[in-house]
């Protein structure tokens, strides 16, 4: 795949793919915010749920990382 048009499409595609990171940001913020809301209601239960918090954040973040990976693939590997 060579040529100006392919290059153009590649860059546009990479830029579009990074929008997916916004979704990951929303997801992580949602998890953290809800955790905080719950923790303020019942602070004594909060430390026990830290593991679940991190696992949830990790799952949400992984999907964002996928879109970042697609952007990188478009930039460097296609």
């Amino acid at each position: 795949m060579e040529g100006e048009l392919a290059l153009l499409g590649k860059y546009i595609g990479a830029g579009l793919a990074t929008i997916g990171l916004g979704g990951a940001g929303i997801g992580v913020g949602h998890i953290a915010g809800n955790f905080l809301a719950g923790a303020l209601r019942n602070p004594s239960a909060a430390p026990g749920q830290m593991a679940n918090l991190f696992v949830g954040i990790a799952f949400a973040e992984a999907l964002g990382i996928f879109s970042f990976l697609i952007a990188l693939l478009l930039m460097f590997a296609v």
């Binding site: 990790a58 799952f59 973040e61 992984a62 990382i65 996928f66 970042f68 990976l69 990188l72």
Partner: peptide, 13 residues
């Protein structure tokens, strides 16, 4: 897949 990409992708990014 997600297990490996998460770690590698985060650090690479």
């Amino acid at each position: 897949l997600s297990h490996s990409i998460r770690l590698g992708g985060n650090l690479m990014a």
